Amino acid sequence: MRRLPVYFLLDTSGSMYGEPIQALNNALSSMINTLRQDAQALDSLWISIITFDREVNEVCPLTELAMFQLPEIVCPQSGPTHTGKALEMLHLKVQADVIKGTDSQKGDWKPLFFLFTDGKPSDLMVYREMIPKIKSLNFGAIVCCAAGNMADDSLLKELTNDVVHLDNADSTALKQFFKWVSETIEQGSKSQGTGESLELPPPPSEITLVI
């Protein structure tokens, strides 16, 4: 069975400390449970989670959904948002993880990439240097989510046209966002092999598409 790799880059900088990080953990857990109820996702989906604050950590290497164990995502009480360094790690991991097709074997499906942040990159120069490298990886979709008024939609639009905005990072907003993410992934797993690009499902009212 060909794999559908899905990568999550999650902002765990100081502004996420407290209720937001708890809400993020709960929303991720709900998303994983939802995906496990989809037979096609269970067959093909592989998930990786990378967190970023002052440090960048691969908290979950690429793992098949059936074996996936979600760790508790934690964050420091304060500190910068190294989004650029997170993109550096993503670039390395995708190059190492994703199996390319050859004459003798079929490769993985185009990977999907979701980025969640409630702030701006503290390492803006590195962030901008990485954008063309990330775009060259041929993702099936790149979706960025900006939460709260400190997040900069325009910087995320440099990375992808698919940017959504949440008013805040509370439990309701994050659950709605990751429920929408699970619908996007399920749609992605069904559209693989059709030759069609992934169409994002319409977002719920709590999520604003950034035009």
Rank of each mutant, 00 (worst) to 15 (best):
C144T: 15
C144S: 15
C144G: 15
C144M: 13
C145N: 11
C145P: 11
C145I: 04
A146L: 01
A146T: 09
A146F: 04
A147C: 05
A147T: 12
G148P: 14
G148W: 15
N149S: 02
N149P: 07
M150K: 09
A151C: 02
A151G: 01
A151L: 00
D152L: 05
D152R: 05
D152H: 08
D152T: 11
D152G: 07
D153E: 07
D153P: 11
D153R: 02
D153M: 07
D153I: 00
D153S: 08
S154A: 15
S154L: 15
S154N: 14
L155Q: 08
L155W: 06
L155Y: 02
L155G: 05
L155I: 12
L156F: 07
L156W: 10
L156R: 02
L156G: 05
L156M: 13
L156H: 06
K157C: 09
K157R: 12
K157M: 12
K157L: 06
K157T: 09
E158R: 07
E158L: 10
L159M: 08
L159I: 10
L159S: 12
L159D: 09
L159Y: 09
L159E: 09
T160V: 01
T160R: 00
T160G: 11
T160E: 10
T160L: 03
N161L: 04
N161C: 04
N161M: 03
N161F: 03
N161T: 03
D162C: 02
D162E: 10
D162W: 04
D162L: 03
V163Y: 07
V163P: 06
V163K: 07
V163W: 08
V163I: 08
V163C: 08
V164D: 09
V164S: 10
V164W: 00
V164R: 00
V164H: 04
H165G: 12
H165R: 15
L166H: 04
L166T: 05
L166S: 03
L166W: 03
D167W: 02
D167L: 01
D167T: 07
N168P: 07
N168T: 10
N168V: 00
N168Y: 11
N168F: 08
A169T: 09
A169P: 14
A169C: 13
A169L: 13
D170F: 00
D170T: 02
D170P: 00
S171R: 13
S171G: 15
S171H: 14
T172K: 08
A173Y: 15
A173E: 14
A173T: 13
A173Q: 14
L174K: 01
L174R: 04
L174Q: 00
K175N: 15
K175R: 13
Q176L: 00
